[in-house]
């Protein structure tokens, strides 16, 4: 069953296209990473999928329904981010109780175990939690609600390293026990690449890349060698990224099927895989050479 279908989905916010003709289809029961730089449109896309925001044009379907203000989508999808607020009169205990009433698949046992594990106090107030604690608590809600579609928008904001690790472990274990569709957005791909099955790379409101994790790992190869030899080789081919490292050395990233790789190998240059996180940064680097160019 198709979980999410977007066709030419566009969202204008204050005259800018936050999403600019996005087209993709997500299938059920996968953990998908939504990767992109700040302002790429990750949050906008997730809010549209969650039914909070209305699309400007194009079509978007979640569970084959238009999500905006849709009750079925609201009941079967949960959107978790660090802006999640609850009424100030409710304690953490109250919030869990209320969530249990609202979400039919609520896993009370899991919620309580996570609540205890992260040593929350049922009487404390959500507003009074620190940023990382808030994210942790929101994560508990996101996991325990066991919605058919769970959207985590930058879920680890403010969490310390050990809690992040715990979170991704919990996510993976819970997913394996109860397979469902989870979309996680992040600009730190290296952090989540172990749990992801596929990624959507978006940039400037467009889907730049939509591939499985395995495909992404074999998408490109990095070559490093002497500048005066490597540079002429790269002239006629598509180069994803190129930079000078040290005196007279160049590092270049090209598609894995590029003929340059064979040539470089013949010159005895070092060829190796590119970490997905680096690749995503290179792919969306606006082809200007990055921050170094500013200081030239």
């Amino acid at each position: 069953m198709k979980l999410v279908e977007c066709d030419n989905l566009t969202k204008r916010i204050y005259g800018n296209n936050a999403l600019d003709g996005i087209t993709f289809t997500l299938h059920e029961n996968k953990i998908t990473g939504l990767i992109g730089r700040n302002g790429a449109g990750k949050t906008t896309l997730m809010k549209i999928l969650a039914g909070y925001w209305r699309e400007t044009s194009g079509t978007v379907k979640v569970f084959s329904e238009r999500p905006f203000q849709n009750l079925i989508v609201s009941a079967n999808a949960i959107y978790v981010d660090d802006q999640m607020t609850f009424h100030q009169s409710l304690t953490l205990g109250d919030i869990l109780e209320e969530a249990e009433r609202f979400y039919p698949n609520w896993d009370k046992g899991l919620a309580e175990r996570l609540f205890d594990y992260f040593s929350f106090h049922p009487k404390s107030k959500h507003d009074a939690l620190s940023k990382g604690r808030k994210s942790t608590f929101n994560m508990i809600i996101g996991l325990a609600s066991k919605c058919k579609l769970t959207l985590f928008d930058e879920p680890t904001t403010g969490m310390d390293a050990s809690v992040r690790k715990d979170f991704y472990r919990a996510l993976l274990k819970d997913y394996l026990a109860h397979p469902r569709s989870i979309i996680i957005s992040s600009h730190h791909l290296e952090e989540i690449e172990d749990v992801l099955e596929e990624i959507i790379l978006i940039d400037e409101g467009k889907v730049f890349l939509y591939q499985s994790m395995d495909e992404l790992k074999e998408y490109a190869q990095g070559i490093s060698g002497k500048t005066d030899i490597l540079k002429p080789l790269l002239d006629d081919v598509e180069v994803i990224y190129k930079t000078e490292i040290g005196a007279g050395n160049t590092y270049a990233v090209v598609r894995a099927n590029s003929p340059v790789i064979e040539q470089a190998r013949q010159y005895g240059m070092a060829i190796g895989p590119v970490a997905p996180n680096d690749l995503c940064i290179y792919l969306t680097a606006k082809h200007k050479g990055g921050i170094d160019d500013v200081f030239k």
Partner: peptide
């Protein structure tokens, strides 16, 4: 996992109860 069907009046009832709790300040 199958889709949970919800009906609006049930949700209104739940939200009303939620608000009675949350809006005790009223």
């Amino acid at each position: 996992m199958s889709l949970n069907r919800v009906n609006a009046s049930d949700i209104v009832k739940k939200q009303f109860q939620y608000k009675l709790k949350a809006y005790v300040g009223v």
